[in-house]
């Protein structure tokens, strides 16, 4: 990296004694990764948006035909509407549960872990570094009808008949997703807690605030950015999760990604799959916006 910038700089300087300005150098250096992301992410997404507005069959000359039919179908067919609502609903529930479960652990690491802080951070990040597919597979093994949880309870005599419905339903999907995205929720909250000015907490205590009141009025509002960030970073990817609904969801836990994949695969209706993808992102974007607005309002109320 230094080569590009260093050689470019000195060559130019030799040529006409011009030096690239600091800003221009920075931008030039950031250009390769930026161009890469734009080319491989932004362009393909634009292509999908375009695809979503085309008809499935080209016209007689083989040209693509523009059409709103895919969106009409997505937004009128109860099957797709139901799947959309369910996926976004699941992702919001997962985000809220994950954040609520994550807050105390982030609090513990930030304030109570003392010299073991780094070890705790490592402990919570290690599972996240293992393959997502394998973690979901493990959950499937744990939750099955004759899986680890049921069989150990039967074996130890704690239950007489195995639990039914641990697997293949929304509850299982929510559990597994909340597990998978735990680190994404803990870290942003942890960072916001560490940055918190502790003298404010002491001041609140000195002024007679109890633990609960202090938490609601000081700690929570001041870590709002972390909490909202955690909600977003869990909610948006989970809405389009593919592996968990397929392995854990079964018929009752199906989500929109299964349907999108089916349109690009077996059903071979790419434009409809594209419209489903775009609709999912719009819906989740709208839900995210709603949460941002709500959080801001709640933050103002707390003060």
């Amino acid at each position: 990296m230094g080569v590009i910038e260093g050689e470019g700089g000195s060559a130019l300087a030799k040529l006409g004694n011009i030096k690239l300005s600091e800003a221009a150098r920075g931008l030039a250096l950031a250009m390769p990764p930026l161009a890469y992301t734009l080319l491989l992410l932004a362009v393909p997404i634009l292509a999908v948006i375009y695809l979503s507005f085309t008809a499935r069959e080209p016209d007689a000359d083989g040209n693509m035909v523009m059409s709103f039919a895919n969106y009409v179908r997505v937004w009128t067919d109860p099957l797709y509407l139901h799947l959309l609502a369910r996926s976004v609903g699941i992702s919001v529930i997962v985000a809220v549960i994950t954040v609520v479960l994550a807050y105390p652990i982030a609090y513990f690491i930030a304030f109570e872990s003392g010299k073991w802080r780094h070890l705790w951070i490592l402990l919570i990040t290690v599972p996240f570094w293992t393959s997502y597919l394998l973690r979901v597979l493990s959950w499937k093994i744990a939750l099955g009808q004759s899986g680890a949880i049921n069989s150990i309870l039967l074996w130890t005599g704690l239950i007489a008949t195995p639990f039914e419905g641990l697997l293949y339903n929304i509850g299982a999907v929510v559990t597994v997703l909340a597990h998978s995205y735990a680190v994404f929720a803990i870290l942003p909250i942890y960072v916001s807690l560490v940055r918190l000015d502790r003298s404010l907490l002491e001041a609140a205590t000195d002024l007679g605030d109890g633990a609960v009141r202090r938490f609601v009025r000081i700690t929570l509002p001041l870590t709002q950015r972390g909490v909202v960030g955690a909600l977003m970073v869990v909610m948006i990817p989970t809405a389009g999760d593919y592996v968990t609904p397929v392995l854990i969801g079964g018929k009752d836990g199906i989500m929109i990604a299964n349907q999108i994949q089916a349109q690009f695969g077996k059903a071979n209706n790419w434009p409809l799959g594209a419209a489903l993808s775009v609709s999912t992102m719009l819906t989740i974007g709208f839900a995210a916006l709603a949460i941002l607005v709500l959080a801001r309002k709640a933050g103002r109320l707390a003060r």
């Binding site: 362009v43 948006i236 990817p237 809405a239 389009g240 999108i260 993808s277 999912t280």
Partner: peptide, 14 residues
């Protein structure tokens, strides 16, 4: 921040 399926399918299309 994006669902991987969206990234994968978009790239696949292009």
């Amino acid at each position: 921040f994006l669902p991987e399926i969206l990234i994968g399918l978009s790239m696949l299309v292009v």
